[in-house]
Write a protein that binds this DNA or RNA. Structure first.
Lengths: 337, 337
DNA sequence: AATTAGCACTCTGGGCACATGAGTGCTACC
DNA sequence: GGTAGCACTCATGTGCCCAGAGTGCTAATT
């Protein structure tokens, strides 16, 4: 049914359509590819591919265009790995080298992603729930007011002001600090929460309210909203990509609705270095019917967050995959250091 | 030359054009406004206004459209203050009420701005150089590695990791912390820098390199890029606003080029509560020829940063001005608390 | 002197017919 | 199974025309 030549025809259609944007016809196909058969034969093959739902024609007497299913088959079975050009490799290197803090790293990575793919790039900040704690600090600002600072695995620094019900003496503060660090060393923050709940028992009766206030504040940090932050770049690439107007207006909205993107990204999570793809309607999001998402997980050793690019279904998948994977690996390596 | 009626005609043209988007002709003008003269008279007046460069016609036999100069005269002399509707007032209240940290406040304010104006909203984070320091903390993470945390006036918390050339003993660290707080209490960070330069003199010879490392790190914080951050919202309003495609593509680019916006915002700085406006080419930015910027300064007591909205020159200036001013005042009040 | 009425003129935009050409599906043939 | 030929379909571009909106000018009116 779908023998080698027919698959070759599908690949050729995808490649031509992606590069030209025009529906591709049988004649041009044999001209631009070494298919060594006549256009008429191709036409028969195309009829079969259309029957299988892999391609479609916008209207009678137009060339063919890949469907979502066609792209899906292409990326799953037909796409060959496209190695990064040395220029791209160099760009990533120079952009991400040097001693940088997390904000800077993520900021540069997202710009690199956008520039190299000419698409909208998205990076999810390392989620606090799955990162590990490197250090916790408790700073007294005033008798009953202190600042809680948490430094994570992935280089993030979170802080939270706390108003205490009663002053916490310097001695108790020091003990509490030590105990907090001890309780959170090792497991992920989420796993450590259980242990934190019992921490107050080992303190004297009179300071327990203050201890609980601090622990509560600590537990609130991952919920503070900030932690599920997305950074984006390359929004203007949208305009270049989508031909008309009404088609990307909803995409812009989806992008501002970070919630939607976050949900998609988190659900797609793949192993670090592995790339996951959603094509067109596979996103199941209104407004993203003609948009694809190429994403990968990253993190120091294990996956702590995701990154990816967003573009029209008509995109250069092999190229995007290569860049997304490269950036994910590079970012993981930096975080592990 | 420009007597009252002619100014009334200009105002009518601006209002009609802003609301309909169509070039406005003499007939419709007398119909929709109480000008109690005939279209022919209006035509004569329009000829004068055109002569003065305040209006223009897209092509012969089309109605008139305000020029940048026309809008300018309108906002400077003709626009009447438009009070906020109670719904708008309530929206701001509910959105910005409650105990929030700086990130949340700014995040909500920018969204309020975007929603109420239907434009692209921009808020500049309080610039570090002009804020005052509330507290500085120095945390030892390892013998020769520490974390510097700075809490500002406007509620921002900045931190920086420092690798020390030599370990800093706990005692010295405590002294240094006290000295840093003392040196930065009062003046703005920028003004305090001079004093910091001499801080190392009062320390023993052997710890001076470490002291200098800390001071250097502190001085680097305002330059770390993060502090001149912009937050934005309502990008998708762009699509709704601008009719065609090529016209807002450059605007999107300018928005991503935060540098450009930052520059404009900073140069426009007005007194807190005062609104400054740039219309079309007044921005002197390629790509923003048809874009206007309505901005105001905000801050606790004095102006520490700016916020504003970005939209097509054809915008409802009185409405935008009212919202921008309201948000700026509200934000200032919150920060001052 | 300012306003108005009347009129000729200009330009855009939509509708229509027409030719063009790319691309197809089908049938007959190798 | 592959190929050649052919009739058919449609989107696109072009030229043309017409209606409508709006103007500028001139002459009349207040």
């Amino acid at each position: 049914m779908l023998d080698d030549r027919r698959l070759a025809v599908l690949r050729a259609i995808v490649e031509d359509y992606v590069s030209t944007g025009e529906p591709v016809g049988s004649r041009g196909l044999v001209e631009r590819h070494q298919l060594s058969v006549s256009p008429a034969t191709i036409r028969n093959d195309m009829a079969v591919l259309e029957e299988a739902g892999l391609i479609a024609q916008p209207h009678t007497s137009a060339g063919r265009v890949p469907t979502d299913a066609g792209y899906r088959l292409f990326v799953d079975q037909l796409a060959t790995v496209k190695p990064l050009s040395s220029a791209e490799r160099r760009a990533i290197h120079t952009l991400l080298d040097g001693p940088l803090d997390l904000d800077q790293i993520v900021g540069r990575a997202v710009r690199a992603l956008a520039q190299l793919t000419h698409k909208v790039a998205v990076i999810q900040y390392p989620s606090l729930r799955v990162t590990r704690v490197r250090h916790i600090e408790l700073i007294e600002l005033a008798p009953a007011r202190c600042l809680l600072v948490m430094i994570t695995d992935a280089g993030r620094v979170e802080q939270s002001f706390i108003e205490l019900p009663i002053p916490l003496g310097a001695d108790t503060a020091a003990v509490l600090r030590a105990r907090l660090n001890q309780a959170t060393a090792g497991p992920t923050l989420e796993e450590a929460f259980g242990e934190l709940d019992n921490l107050w028992r080992s303190f004297a009766e009179d300071v327990r309210p203050a201890v609980r206030a601090v622990v509560d504040a600590l537990k609130r940090i991952p919920k503070a909203g900030y932690q599920e932050r997305l950074v984006m770049a390359g929004t203007s690439n949208l305009a270049r990509a989508s031909a008309d107007f009404s088609s990307f207006m909803p995409v812009l909205e989806a992008i501002e609705e970070q919630v939607v993107l976050l949900k998609l990204l988190t659900e797609m999570t793949a192993d670090s270095g592995e790339v996951a793809i959603l094509i067109g309607r596979e996103t199941t999001q209104a407004g993203l019917e003609e948009t694809s998402l190429v994403a990968a997980g990253y993190g120091p050793g294990r996956v702590v967050a995701n990154l990816g690019v967003l573009g029209p279904t008509r995109m250069d998948y092999p190229g995007s995959i290569a860049v997304v994977r490269a950036i994910a690996l590079y970012l993981s390596r930096i975080l592990a250091a």
